[in-house]
Structure formats: C-alpha cells, structure tokens
Write a protein that binds this DNA or RNA. Structure first.
Lengths: 110, 110
DNA sequence: ATCGAAGTTCGATGAGGATCATACTTCGAT
DNA sequence: ATCGAAGTATGATCCTCATCGAACTTCGAT
C-alpha cells in the first residue's frame, strides 16, 4: 500500500470552520487546555506534533482535546510517521470570525 | 428612605470586564440563552427589562443567566420600579476584547 | 391595606463533558 | 521480526452547570 492511501485511511474529517455552528466553535474555545494548544500554535506560528505540547493532561485526554479542535475547524491534523502534526487554521478562522482568535488569544492570558 | 439608597441596597457588584478573567467571559458567552440575551441588546441598541426578552426558560433560570452576564462584565443592571433594566457594556467589552462581540454576535446565528 | 407584576432565592435534579487507566493500533528503527 | 514511541479507542467516574418549581421580596397601583 502506498504511503498516501495508507495515510488517507487514518485521516478523519476536517470540517471547514465556516460550516461549523458558532455554538460548537465556542464550546471548543471555552476549555483552557484547548486554548493552551491554540496558543502554542498561535504564538510559535509553526505546526506542532501532539506530543510537543506542554499539556497537563493524560495522553487520552489530549487526544480528545485535539479531536474537539479539529471538529470545530480550528486546526487541521496530518500524520507524519507515527506523529500527528497540528496546524492552526488561522486564515479560515479569521475569515469566518474576524477578530475572534485575536480576542481570545490576544491577551497573554491562560 | 430615599429612592437612591433603597436602590443602592439592591444593586449587586458590577465588575469591569477588563478585570474579569477571559475564562469567565467565555463561559458566559458559551451558553446560547445568554447569547440570545446579548443579541437582543446588541441588535436593538436599547436597554431592556428582563421581562421583555424572548426567552425559552423559566424566570428563575433567566435570573441566573442575567447574573452570569453581569458578573462577567458584559451587562449592567439597574432597577426601575419593579423591573430591572439591562444594558450591554459595548464600549467596555470592545475595549477589553476588540472584535469579540462582533465575532460572536456578527453572524445572525443563534 | 391589598393585590398583582417583576424578579430573586433556594434546593433538587439531570445531562454533558473533562478526566483517567487500560488495552490497542500503527509506524519507524534496529 | 521485534520493540518502543506516538496516538487512539473504550468504558468508568466525577463534577459542574442549566434547569425547574415553590416560596419569598419589592414595588406600583388601586
């Protein structure tokens, strides 16, 4: 099996944030662990593997949080070997909710 | 007793949104009933008594929601006779979190 | 002085979600 | 072929929060 289609099989749905109900986006943003993830992506400006985040929760809980962020259209995820890289959907979020990311991550606040 | 000090006794604390943790503001915004309240204030541009809102919950639940919004610094409340008038803190919210209100209430969305 | 309208308080209930440990899968390296 | 690293899936637990009804307060009007 080629690497491309192998990866395809493991790649879950990535809704566009423009299609996600506001309610779901806010529910994703209200958890401080999830905002911590977004903040690391936002501040560093780089893609990051799940394991490289400074998280205070177990691995299974972390997986849950990454799923919630992806399903809200806030991040995309792709496999690189056994790691999973996470990318902040900055452009799309800004287009769908102008000012939201900056408002939520703008203060240095937790 | 003069009306002014009578009213004073019934007036609860009104934190400035700039002093409220982001977490608390987001928790206030994540409930759709509360966003409905904010939206009516935002759209009409007027102060409104609690009873004039188009709410789907009981009176006691409504009281709860107004409290949460006030404690998050999103609205102020003052008594006028037996009614309680609610005012959106537009200027203060915009100053503390530029773009947040528009991002959350901008789409016509529930 | 009474009554109703507008809110509030209190206690109980129920649903959802954050969390974890355990077991499992998938991949790269040896 | 095996092993460890990186994540995922599942089921259980715990806790917070939205909700309600009922009793209460406060005020204006009659």
């Amino acid at each position: 099996m080629r690497a491309a289609s192998r990866e395809q099989g493991r790649t879950p749905a990535h809704p566009e944030i423009g299609d996600v109900p506001l309610q779901q986006v806010l529910e994703a943003l209200v958890d401080p662990v999830r905002r911590g993830i977004l903040r690391e992506l936002y501040d560093s400006g780089e893609d990051r593997a799940c394991g490289t985040f400074d998280l205070t929760v177990s691995k299974s809980t972390a997986t849950h949080h990454f799923n919630v962020l992806r399903e809200a259209g806030l991040i995309t995820q792709r496999y690189v070997g056994t790691s999973r890289m996470n990318t902040l959907c900055r452009k799309e979020v800004d287009a769908a909710f102008p000012g939201l990311l900056d408002a939520v991550l703008g203060r240095g606040e937790a």
